[in-house]
């Protein structure tokens, strides 16, 4: 009994220190980043595309646009392929094939992001430069690389959502003479909707936060991209590229970029959590 109490106390301390570590990081980022946002004014900091640290102008608008563009592109690619794959695995493929393919897709998550970036630089960037024009380092290249990187997240959560749909719905539809595709489209996707939305949002969180692969293929120029073939810089790249030599207000502005990212990802995760809680509730209804 006494041993139990000691172990419980140790575990509590470990858990609390992990949580307080996270809390301290949060406080630190905000303490370092908030002053410059307040000093330059939120409107100026977020909505000006003028980022010239040496002249003291800190506007991250072009990076926000860069992050949004790259993330949106990644989600288009990630959802088309990830959800498509999830549909094939759960509705059409024989279970033995699905049992092999799903772990393979999940294994993609274990590849280091620098490897994805490297593959992008070596194969994708020259391909885009030669076939579509522009410098190759572009929104499109970053979107494709990120789209592949979010596949494991999107696929495995979508597969779980589709598998959680009661088989009785599927049988009811098939027994009415619906084809597999009609059943998938009209019943399964609707029943799994909240899980699929959660998959998209968590994928989006990954895409927004990814840094290394994006730095390698996005081109990183500080301007609002005019087309998907133009280079761009994202919020994460901005921090990683400049933190090494930044000091003073410049360093603060990079922390403020971090605050911006932090808030975006927090919002995405909260939405994903509430959506997936709702789907759990819906399931318990049945």
């Amino acid at each position: 009994m006494k041993k139990d109490k000691i172990i419980a106390a140790i575990l509590t301390v470990t858990a609390l220190s992990a949580i307080s570590g996270l809390a301290l990081i949060t406080i630190f980022i905000f303490r370092e980043g908030m002053p410059i946002i307040l000093r330059t004014g939120g409107g100026e900091f977020f909505l000006s595309a003028d980022w010239r640290p040496r002249d003291g102008s800190f506007g991250i608008f072009s990076m926000i646009i860069g992050s949004l563009a790259v993330t949106a592109g990644a989600m288009v690619i990630g959802m088309i392929f990830g959800l498509g794959l999830a549909i094939v695995l759960t509705q059409f493929a024989p279970p033995s094939l699905a049992a092999v393919l799903k772990p393979v897709v999940e294994l993609l998550a274990g590849i280091p992001s620098v490897v994805y970036g490297f593959m992008g630089v070596v194969t994708l960037v020259p391909l885009i430069r030669n076939r579509l024009g522009g410098p190759g380092l572009s929104v499109l290249a970053a979107s494709i690389v990120l789209g592949i990187m979010v596949l494991p997240t999107v696929t495995s959560i979508s597969v779980d959502a589709l598998q959680a749909v009661p088989r009785s719905f599927w049988e009811g539809s098939i027994a009415l003479g619906a084809t597999r595709w009609q059943t998938t489209r009209m019943v399964m996707l609707k029943a799994a909707r909240s899980g699929i939305v959660a998959a998209a949002i968590l994928g989006m969180g990954r895409a927004v936060g990814e840094t290394m692969a994006v730095i390698m293929v996005a081109g990183n120029s500080i301007e609002i991209p005019g087309s998907i073939l133009a280079p761009t810089r994202t919020l994460t790249s901005n921090i990683a590229l400049e933190m090494g030599y930044a000091s003073g207000a410049h360093r603060e502005a990079l922390f403020a970029t971090g605050v911006t990212l932090f808030v975006i990802i927090m919002i995405l995760n909260c939405v994903a959590l509430s959506v997936s809680r709702r789907s759990a509730r819906e399931r318990s209804f049945r």
Binding site: P166, F169, E171, G172, S173, A175, M186, V187, K190, A191
Partner: peptide, 13 residues
Amino acid sequence: VGMVFQRPNPFPL
């Protein structure tokens, strides 16, 4: 030839 199941299974619609 339609079928009614043991447990009611209306679609989530």
